[in-house]
Write a protein that binds this DNA or RNA. Structure first.
Lengths: 200, 200
DNA sequence: ACCGGGCCGTGACAGTTGTCATCGGCCTAC
DNA sequence: GTAGGCCGATGACAACTGTCACGGCCCGGT
């Protein structure tokens, strides 16, 4: 019997997967939780064979939760994500994640992936793997990535500067340089591109 | 036997719901599709008893698809949405939609809602209904809403002006006025707020 | 020892954005 | 009929943004 932990902040899909996987003869849903922190706690408590973690969760995201769980519990992790960004796959594999599937995967296939992973194999969605292999590494410097990250939810340059303890001019320079490298005209587009590539 | 059409662009949740609802003795999934246009076509072809439409879909959104379907086919529509914005509920009810549930609803409850709606009753999630009743009507003028809508995916004032065939100064004025009414400092925040309220 | 490169900052400049005052035209309500 | 509201536009102004040039610091490679 494979004991599974499911973490997804969207109740409808989580409950649907719980019911559906529960119907499989060899799978048992040990716990279902809402966010990354709960996932870590539940993994420690139930020590499941496989953890199915949504990437997009409040608090800890899926990869961060995976890192913490794998440090503390002998289990295997599958990351599920809506937007399969190549850089995130790299992050996930770096965190010793065993499986990586987009939500464009039919629910029926999940059971098979869970069995594969429970048996010690790895499973990465072929499309994402191909994109990640083809996609280049970020041409951006660490600091440029920092300002883009901070710029994702900051309205003004001054706010970014405050958050990073930098001078506004410095922030403008990094943004300008990043925008140049990415071939876009505004910092918002730059943040957008960097996010889609999974660089931030 | 209640025949159901499911439209959701996220394969995993759609396939999960198809499987789960298919297990109910009195429910049969007649079709499952990816976007609004396909939903309209499939509804005409299969004439299902109930259409379960995701709000967030490429092409036609759920409410637009509902309008077209209800004009052409004798059926009932349930809108499912991730972000339950009060204004959208108003739009949906205006389109003669019979049910409105957020994705924070457990999948198990969906079958009950479908039966209710198939029996001619209406079902609106109580939380959303309360929010919609309590929430105020938009304080914004039609033109202000136009510029905010156009501003959602335009980078510069000039682009908004071009799209609406207005002078840039006029656009700035509407934006400024809307920003004042909404108590925010940038047009992006204003668009954000208006969107969350379901005004655009 | 000498680059080169990333890092942090300044100053200056043009272009964009947000604010304000003001105008005329068109409706609607009183 | 007139006062008030929304619509479209203009001009002026301050603030913010993006670009460029330039300075200094520190570190790794040669």
């Amino acid at each position: 019997m494979i004991r599974v932990l499911i973490a997804d902040d969207e109740v409808m899909i989580r409950s649907a997967l719980e019911s559906l996987l529960g119907l499989e003869e060899d799978i048992e849903v040990a716990a279902g939780v809402d966010d990354g922190h709960q996932a870590v706690a539940a993994a420690r408590e139930h020590a499941p064979d496989v953890c199915l973690l949504d990437l997009e969760m409040p608090g800890l995201d899926g990869v961060e939760a995976a890192e913490q769980i794998l440090r503390q519990v002998a289990t295997r992790v599958i990351i599920v994500t809506r937007h399969a960004r190549p850089g995130v796959l790299r992050r996930a594999l770096g965190a010793r994640v065993s499986g990586f599937v987009p939500k464009s995967t039919p629910a029926e296939d999940l059971a098979r992936v869970i069995r594969d992973v429970a048996a010690g194999r790895r499973y990465v969605d072929p499309d994402i793997a191909a994109t990640a292999l083809g996609g280049e590494r970020s041409p951006l410097t660490d600091r440029e990535l920092d300002v883009l990250r901070a710029g994702r939810d900051a309205a003004t340059v001054q706010q970014i500067a405050d958050r990073l303890h930098l001078a506004p001019g410095t922030v403008r320079n990094y943004l300008s340089s990043a925008m140049g490298k990415l071939g876009v005209g505004t910092r918002r587009e730059a943040s957008q591109v960097a996010w889609e590539q999974g660089w931030i």
